[in-house]
Amino acid sequence: MPSMSLFLSQLFNGLATGLLLALISTGLTIIYGTLGVVNFAHGALFVVGAYAGYTAYSLTDSFMLAIAAGALTSLVVGLIIERGLMRMYYGRPPEDQILVTFGIGIILVEIVRSIYGGVSLSVSTPEWGQGIAHIGSLIYPLYRLQALGFAAATLLILYYLLYRTSLGLIVRAGIEDSQMVNVLGINVKRTFLLVFGIGAMAAGYAGVIDSPIVTLAPDMGNRILVDSFVVVVIGGVGSFPGAIIGGIIAGEILSLTSMFNPAYSDVMLFIVMALVLIFRPQGLMGQEGRE
């Protein structure tokens, strides 16, 4: 049996990884929860943000500028995608949306690969994040703790923006009946554009926040996409509290299973996801009947 201190360490790690997973999946949650589009380019937008952040960081040595650059680049890419393609797909079946976003994802990743190559790149931890924190018997990288702060703050801001402002109201009304919202004199198209942009930006932002923790490789988005889906499915599609709870559950499953047999960490994750799909298809915090 694992020792108590190991158990507590893994319990804490599950929480920390979980909040990072929640942050990583926000972009997906925003776009699906408001526009109803399953964005398979989510992982690629994460990659775009991370690499843009990498470039800005190596040019300026300022991590804050890197965050801004990563978020802005993915915002712009998101806006272009929405104006150029996605706009034509809102009224089409979900499988069309999945295919087109998947294709966009491939194109974005290959563009990144053609610019940066396939060799992994490393973003060093910003100066204020270097070092190791000792929490009881647990040794934890300081930056991972700070990333938790970033994650929590970001989730709060986005939640407020999309659920407690008139922008959020318009978006959600627009999904239900875009014609009626148009009749009311509101430019729904522009709102959709904005939301897609925010979703893309959230993905790119998460990419920069994550980049001091991992090494950057063009294909890192695949795993991000899978993780994000698991979080969203467990937590409830389009639900912000759901994304947080889904993230924490996923993080705890990965951490706690690894104490007994790390080979089963992923298996357990997908078993839980399958159980949620069977017994509560809308997810733990999702609303029934939401398209």
Partner: peptide, 11 residues
């Protein structure tokens, strides 16, 4: 293709 190794590293 794993991305986060934290749980393995704690073990």
């Amino acid at each position: 293709g794993a991305k986060d190794y934290s749980s393995y590293l704690i073990n």
